[in-house]
Simulated scan of single mutants.
Amino acid sequence: MHVWSVANQKGGVGKTTTVVTIAGLLAEVGYRVLLIDLDPHGSLTSYFGYDPDELEDSVYDLFNGNKKVAKDDVTRLLLKSSHERIELIPASTAMATLERKAVGAEGMGLQVAKALSHVKDRYDYVLIDSPPVLGVLMVNALAACQHLLVPVQTEFLALKGLERMVRTINMINRARTKKLSFTIIPTFYDRRTQASVSSLRELHHNYPNEISNAVIPVDTKFRNASIQGLVPSVMDSSSRGVHSYARLLRSLLERQKQEAL
C-alpha cells in the first residue's frame, strides 16, 4: 500500500482537486484507493456529497483520547464515493477542536499511520487531503505518507506559502529515519498571464529537482466535476486538466518504480 499526502500551508491551491483527480486516474486503471479528509473544512468530504456538519462518525474518532486504534475503529468510518474503487474516511467540523486537545497529549501525531496499518491489504493507494495549517492534523498526514505532493498556485503569494511548507518538511525530516520526498505541482496555470509565467519560471529556478514537469492549467471542467461529485476523469477524460494530472501520475509511478529498484 502506497500513501501519498497532499499538503500546503496555503489554502486555495488545488489540494482537493489534486486528491480526487489522481484518485480517479488510479481507480480507472484498477487500483483500490482510500481517501482521507484531514481538513476540518471538509472539502473532500463535501465533494462526494457528505455534510461534515452532520456526520456522527469521522476521522475525528481516531483521535479519541488515548484509546488504541483497532481495525473496527477504522473500517466503520469508511464511506462510499461516486467511484466503485474509491472509499473515503470523512472529516467533520469537530476536528477543529483537535489542536486544543492535542496539547500535552502523547502519540497524537501517529494516529493516522496506526489506523492505516489495519487496512494495508485492502487498498493499493491512500491519498490524504491535509489542512492548510501546521498542527496535529498536518503532522499526521506527513508522518503517515511515503511521498508528499505540494500543489502550488502559480502566483506570488503562493510561492511565499511554499517557502513555509518547505521549512516544515525540513523540520519533519529531522525526526524521520527516511527523509520525506516531495513533488511540487504548479496549479492554476494560465500562460496568458505574466504572473503565471514568471511564477512558474521561479519555481523551476528555486526547486529544479522537486518540481513536476506536469503543469495543471486553469480548467472549468474541475468545477463541473465537483458539482456532480464525480472524479474529473469520469466527468471528462479528455479535458486539459485531466491530461495534465495523468502526466503527473505517470511520473509519480515511474519514480515509485525506480525507488523500489
Rank of each mutant, 00 (worst) to 15 (best):
V3Q: 04
W4L: 15
W4M: 12
V6C: 07
Q9L: 14
G11I: 09
V13R: 10
G14D: 11
K15F: 04
K15Y: 01
K15N: 05
T17I: 08
V19F: 06
A23I: 01
A23Y: 02
G24E: 01
G24R: 00
G24T: 01
L25R: 05
L34V: 03
L35A: 06
L35K: 08
D37Y: 09
D39L: 08
P40T: 09
H41L: 11
G49N: 01
Y50M: 03
Y50F: 12
Y50W: 04
Y50I: 08
P52G: 08
D53I: 07
L55H: 04
E56R: 15
D57P: 02
D57A: 08
V59C: 10
V59S: 15
Y60H: 11
Y60Q: 04
F63I: 05
K67D: 12
K68F: 07
K71P: 00
D73V: 05
V74F: 02
T75R: 08
L77I: 03
L79A: 03
H83C: 00
E87Y: 04
I89G: 01
A94M: 05
A96T: 07
A96D: 11
E99M: 06
V103W: 01
G104C: 03
A105R: 15
G107F: 06
V112W: 04
V119H: 03
D121P: 01
R122G: 00
Y123L: 07
D124T: 07
Y125S: 05
I128K: 10
I128H: 10
D129C: 04
P131K: 15
Q146T: 07
Q146I: 00
V150E: 05
V150S: 06
P151M: 07
P151A: 04
Q153E: 13
Q153P: 03
A158T: 02
L159I: 11
K160Q: 12
K160L: 14
K160V: 10
K160M: 12
E163Q: 14
E163N: 06
I169F: 04
I172F: 08
I172G: 02
R174C: 05
T177R: 13
S181N: 09
T183I: 06
T183R: 07
T183H: 09
I185N: 09
P186W: 12
P186I: 11
P186D: 10
Y189F: 15
D190I: 04
T193P: 09
Q194L: 13
V197H: 10
V197A: 14
S198D: 14
L200V: 08
E202S: 12
H204N: 15
H204K: 15
H204Q: 14
N206T: 13
A214N: 07
A214S: 13
I216V: 10
P217E: 12
P217F: 09
P217Q: 13
P217W: 12
F222Q: 06
R223H: 11
N224I: 00
N224F: 00
I227H: 12
Q228C: 02
Q228N: 06
G229P: 06
P232L: 01
P232F: 03
S233Y: 01
V234E: 08
D236N: 15
D236V: 05
R240N: 14
G241M: 03
H243Q: 14
S244D: 12
Y245P: 10
Y245L: 06
Y245A: 11
L248W: 05
L249T: 11
R250N: 14
R250L: 08
S251D: 15
E254L: 13
Q256C: 03
Q258N: 13
E259T: 08
